[in-house]
Design a protein around this nucleic acid. Structure first.
Lengths: 94, 94
DNA sequence: CACGCATATGCCACAAGGAGTATATAAGCG
DNA sequence: CGCTTATATACTCCTTGTGGCATATGCGTG
């Protein structure tokens, strides 16, 4: 599970990342909003943190997780090579 | 392997997609350029075709595969929600 | 310091995907 | 028509990821 692509292949992880767009969240908040079991949330957050997609800070017993955009940008960069295709496709339709 | 994200999680498949950016290619051409075993190429192409990432036409015994951008655009669309983050990050650095 | 809440980790079982090898299908060509 | 080239599929093995459950750790509070 080295690559950024493998990380975001998992639907629950994508859901977590989307949640974190609005603001940082604690594990419990993620758990409730996504209705996932707590260990599942923690495990996915671990994966996301190790891969550099999120970072966390301590707030008493809570850990607050927030987005780190670099890795997503990596995905975005890979997609760049294909961008001309969808403009080309639109052109073809016209 | 339903989602577009799972499809592009596989490195060989990403390599194939990148190859097809330049022009359509036959199975054999892909095989040689990426140094993959022929059945491996065929299997990945099957997955890519079923998922809507590529399409093929027949040229005698050859099958020519070419890119279909829609699914990649799907990924791009999902990434959109994060875009404001990397501009924000740049701003923060300044 | 005992208890409770929040989070992390360990272990197990299950499922799914990928590679390798062999084989099938299909088209062109002598 | 038999042979060769090009591609697809079947089967098996192996690895890896994920979830569930139980348990550990850590901090705060009475």
């Amino acid at each position: 599970m080295e690559s950024a692509f493998e990380i975001i292949a998992e639907p629950n992880r994508r859901a977590i990342l989307s949640l974190l767009v609005s603001s940082e969240q604690s594990v419990g908040e993620i758990e409730r909003q996504l209705r996932m079991a707590q260990p599942t949330v923690s495990k996915h957050l671990r994966v996301l943190r190790d891969a550099g997609f999120v970072e966390s800070t301590v707030d008493a017993q809570r850990r607050l997780y927030r987005l780190k955009p670099e890795k997503l940008q990596e995905v975005d960069d890979w997609l760049a090579q294909f961008r001309r295709f969808w403009s080309a496709h639109v052109d073809a339709l016209e």
